[in-house]
């Protein structure tokens, strides 16, 4: 009654409910034992979070095993995890992850390289940039996915159109936060550097970048969040794109393969958490700097 990406997986290789529950329990229990042996190594908070997440998974598995929900609509988590492992083992998953992350990082780095210098320029020579403000404000209000159709017209289906709208999504938060950050620079700080014989480059490196660093990283985090949303939309719409986690989700949805749909959602959540954590680390860096 429903299709599947991997019919061979249906026949076997699926984690049985008891073994899945056992694995989850041990994932909760091992850190708990560690904490008991070496107090202070693992925080109580992460242990609490882990046990709630594990509890939800076990409950979900039991509900599925008892047949309370239709497995086509909501497959058991054990099947979802074996599906992820299987997709990795046959080498199907890696290209999807690589192309999704490639699109995201490419557009994100492009956005950083364009938005930060433009933001600094805009707040330092308002004479040339304030006339453009009405246009920037209008462009800012149009959500990036609304540009998708236009971007497909301009760049065709594929990497380029996706990268364009992800760049657009990341650009405005970074740009506006850079402008806000640079406006926090006090004239006295700039004058101090100039008095001690520094040039404009010194002002940039010694004053403007350190002062606005925090704002820029905050903008980058907001931009990356919106970039993820836009990335997924681009991959869902451009069916011809043929790769990426979003594409995988939509393609398996058409086959009513909910297991692969859920695998994709969970993987996107994991990678979103990873990219956000990396940027959070950068946010922490500045405390030592300034």
């Amino acid at each position: 009654m429903h299709g599947s990406y991997f019919p061979e997986l249906e026949k076997g290789d699926i984690l049985s409910s008891p073994s899945f529950i056992l694995i989850v329990l041990s994932i909760i229990a091992i850190p708990a034992v560690f904490r008991w042996l070496f107090p202070g190594l693992i925080s109580t908070r992460s242990l609490k979070g882990l046990s709630v997440a594990g509890g939800i998974l076990i409950l979900w598995e039991i509900i599925s095993a008892l047949g309370l929900v239709n497995p086509v609509l909501l497959p058991p988590p054990g099947r979802v995890f074996s599906n992820i492992v299987y997709m990795w083992a046959i080498g199907f998953l890696q290209p999807q992850i690589v192309s999704t992350l490639f699109r995201l990082t490419y557009a994100f780095i492009l956005a950083l390289l364009s938005a930060v210098p433009l933001g600094i320029l805009a707040s330092y020579s308002p004479k040339y940039f304030s006339p453009l403000e009405p246009l920037v404000n209008a462009a800012r209000v149009i959500p990036a996915p609304a540009w998708l159709s236009l971007s497909i017209l301009w760049f065709g289906m594929g990497h380029a159109s996706a990268i364009f709208i992800i760049w657009l999504a990341c650009f405005f938060p970074i740009f506006l936060n850079t402008v806000a950050g640079v406006s926090k620079v006090e004239p006295a700080q700039v004058e101090t550097v100039l008095t001690f014989g520094g040039n404009k480059f010194d002002v940039l490196v010694e004053v403007i970048l350190p002062v606005s660093y925090h704002h820029i990283v905050t903008g980058a985090r907001i931009g990356l969040g919106i970039g993820w949303i836009t990335l997924v939309t681009a991959e869902l719409v451009s069916v011809d794109i043929g790769s990426g986690l979003g594409w995988m989700i939509n393609d398996s949805r058409i086959l009513l393969d909910t297991t692969t749909v859920l695998s994709g959602i969970i993987l996107i959540g994991i990678f979103g958490t990873i990219t956000d954590t990396v940027l959070k680390r950068f946010e922490g860096l500045v405390q030592g700097w300034s």
Binding site: S46, G49, V52, L231, I265, I268, G269
Partner: peptide, 26 residues
């Protein structure tokens, strides 16, 4: 907050459009 925020933080990181195909099935 301490018990539930890690799970909520994970759900927060999933872009809503990614849930769309799943929600359509449901």
């Amino acid at each position: 907050y301490e018990w539930l925020s890690p799970v909520l933080n994970f759900i927060r990181m999933i872009p809503p459009p990614a849930m769309l195909p799943f929600v359509i099935i449901l």
